[in-house]
Amino acid sequence: MNFFRLLGDLSHLASIFILLHKIQTTRSCRGISFKTQVLYVVVFVTRYLDLLTFQFHSIYNTVMKLFFIGSSIYILYLMRVRFRPTNDPSIDTFRIEYLLGPCAVLSLIFNYGYTWLEIPWSFSIFLESVAILPQLFMLQRTGEAETITTHYIAALGAYRALYIPNWIFRYFTEDNGVDAIAVVAGIVQTALYVDFGWIYFTKVLQGQKFELPA
């Protein structure tokens, strides 16, 4: 564990707490893509199948995995049951089958072994890299967002960005090579946040509302 990865994981945790806070305090899931949240559940469940093997890494690792699975399912419950009337599917129109299909194909081509752990793991890495797209697409359609929602997306972007220096650090301090699948997918994922990040830094952090140019 190094500084960048710890900070990245904490940023990931923070993003989930920001999202929960947004839904609970506004009593609304307006502006949040249900499809992106469904994809995150799929990502966590397929990636953390190794929990079932009880191959223990650390308490940190196990607790975080359980938290990510549990909180992502809880968010679906909040959106679909508790605050269902505030969820507007008519603007959440990204076709997620166009993400799921190619990720499934990629995971069959690029993986670290044809096993029931490695193929879902690889699939989850590819899927995570594009899981934010329905959310960004929704933002694009509405052209604006509540400030708290932009903090949520920014925390997710920071988490991804921090994993890159983590890999560089690990490359130079450890002697076991590069996780090419995670690194390539991670760079793609981080790149998807660049546009958003620019507006976040130049508008939201300067105290303005998040609005896309017409």
Partner: peptide
């Protein structure tokens, strides 16, 4: 171990 998946990452 060689290049490959980092099983300790989340």
């Amino acid at each position: 171990t060689g290049a490959g998946r980092k099983k300790d990452e989340l």
